[in-house]
Nucleic acid binder design. Structure first.
Length: 491
RNA sequence: GGUCUCUUGGCCGAGUGGCUAGGCAGUGGUCUGCAAAACCACGUACGGCGGUUCGAAUCCGCCAGAGACCUCCA
């Protein structure tokens, strides 16, 4: 039951049973961020999608090597400039070293991911740290005859490759269509065809990031790093390659071509693509300028945000949609996610306090089977979450005495929620007040106030009881009366 | 222009040829001194028009609308 994971393979356009290349082991490569700006909501989609997959594979007891790169060189700014590196351009703007920019945004990215409880990959290689490997790959492609040198740059010969290979198989493109739709880009005159892409690019004198190569001073092409680094750390053939849908063409298509040209066969067996986060129905993206950074979500400082949203709310929001669907941002949707998640997490706390009876009136095995079925069906987290909410009703009913559970089932249910809510979905309970001295004192003060209010209530002194409640509320402390007594929380 | 995808109830979002998705909001109830919170219960749906079928929101066609990629992008 646990081991019938199916995943949607972009190559075949259907769900396939996942069978690793080597029994019990999984190699997976995911395209990481370009570190020239703060991470925004869109960046969380692949990070959380593949974190979910990584966590689930580990839960299934696979030994996983998860590689996610940091792109710190190699992408062009746009077609208007002179082939200048994105990172170099920003660096000049800020008048700092390119590597300083890279370091800053890498740090920010890792920091944001940690807040989102995204597990760090096993290897997080950088493009600048693998220039030698990339040059070696370019050499191999030249030797294989699928590339040519021009003016100190090396280009991949797409038309030649397409004669005996299927260029466009991943993205569903036909070479004839592509040939009709090429645009004027930098270096076009150096290329034999508009479809050809750079494997190595000659650096202009003002270009800051530059390395020596057999073809002169330059920098690696846009798609080279993923081929070189996936091969180095996962081998010439590996299990899963992931990334955003927008990378399918040309990036992943070029990667496939590079690997085939250099190794004689394709590298990744399963290609997985997450869909986009939209805002007002349109893709949230760097180039459109309609993005909201994670930092802005966390502190609420953006015109479109009605409030701050915790990292866990963002994570739950992402997980409530299937990774292959678009997900539309709105305050209403995020607030719904926030409340729903609180209810789910609260139930996990209640679950720890349940006591066992002799008989079970609930079916824990059926719930467990449904949870695995959901995850095995192309890691369908929204379905999983729906089942977990059914379980919330079960937990609350037992807590209310409307249902009973025996000791074995209770242990199983507790394990189930630990596994699915915390280990697999990667949610974590919101920090219930840090345990420093101040919060301990605060807690003491609050206990005193609650006791005073309770005695006022006992004396039917409603004026005093309500004054305590209302005045605390006005300074942002909310009292909640429960069956077990009053509790408080900061709002 | 080319290729492809999507259109589900107030909002977000699953799924499927016939069997309740789920969450949030809303309504009713339980609890409470009152309220909040919490818990329980309950609607409303499958863009339009045709077709296939015993039966379609689910398959096919047309129309309308939205989007993605074709250029860096998660």
């Amino acid at each position: 039951m646990k081991n019938t994971l199916s995943i949607y393979n972009t190559l075949s356009r259907k769900k396939e049973v996942f069978e690793p290349l080597h029994a019990g082991k999984v190699g997976m490569y995911v395209c990481g961020p370009t570190v020239y700006g703060d991470a925004h909501l869109g960046h969380t989609r692949p990070a959380i999608t593949f974190d979910l997959l990584y966590r689930y594979l580990m839960h299934l007891e696979y030994k996983v090597r998860y590689v996610r790169n940091i792109t710190d060189v190699g992408h062009l700014v746009g077609d208007a400039d002179e082939g200048e590196d994105k990172i170099a351009k920003k660096a000049k703007l800020d008048e700092v070293e390119p590597m300083e920019v890279v370091q800053k945004y890498t740090n920010n990215y890792r920091n944001d991911m940690r807040k989102l409880n995204v597990l760090p990959p096993n290897i997080e290689p950088t493009a600048t740290g693998h220039i030698i490997e990339q040059i070696e790959e370019v050499k191999k492609i030249l030797e294989a005859g699928y590339a040519y040198e021009s003016n100190g740059s090396v280009y991949f010969d797409v038309e030649k490759f397409a004669k005996n290979h299927d260029y466009g198989k991943l993205s569903g493109r036909r070479i004839e269509d592509l040939l009709e739709n090429t645009r004027q880009l930098d270096g076009q005159n150096e290329k034999r065809s508009g479809l050809d892409f750079a494997l190595w690019k000659n650096a202009a004198p003002e270009h800051l990031m530059r390395w020596p190569s057999p073809w002169g001073i330059g920098f690696p092409g846009w798609h080279m790093e993923c081929s070189a680094m996936s091969t180095k750390y996962l081998g010439k053939e590996f299990d899963i390659h992931g990334g955003g849908m927008d990378l399918m063409f040309p990036h992943h298509e070029a990667e496939i071509a590079q690997c085939v040209a250099s190794n004689g066969h394709e590298s990744a067996r399963y290609w997985m693509h997450n869909n986009m986060v939209t805002i007002n129905g349109q893709k949230m993206g760097k180039s459109l300028g309609n993005f909201i950074t994670l930092e802005q979500f966390f502190n609420g400082e953006h015109d479109l945000l009605e409030q701050a949203y915790s990292p866990m709310t963002i994570r739950f929001f992402i997980l409530q949609a299937h990774y292959r669907s678009t997900l539309d941002f709105s305050n209403e949707a995020l607030q719904a996610a926030e409340k729903g998640m609180e209810r789910l997490l609260k139930a996990t706390t209640v679950l720890q306090t349940l006591t066992a009876s002799n008989e079970s009136t609930v079916d824990v095995n059926a719930l467990e089977a449904k949870c695995y079925a959901a995850m095995n069906d192309d890691i369908n987290s929204p379905i999983l979450i729906a089942h977990l909410f059914d379980g919330v009703k079960m937990i609350n009913s037992i807590s209310d005495g409307k249902a009973t559970i025996n000791a074995d089932d209770l242990a199983k249910l507790q394990q189930l929620y630990q596994a699915f809510v915390f280990d697999i979905l990667g949610l974590e309970a919101t920090e219930a007040g840090s345990s420093n001295d101040d919060s301990e004192k605060m807690d003491g003060v609050m206990q005193l106030l609650l006791e005073m209010r309770q005695s006022a209530k006992t004396n039917k002194d409603w004026a005093t009881a309500d004054k305590i409640r209302d005045e605390l509320k006005s300074i942002g402390i909310e009292i909640k009366d429960t069956k077990e007594g009053a509790t408080w929380e900061l709002k």
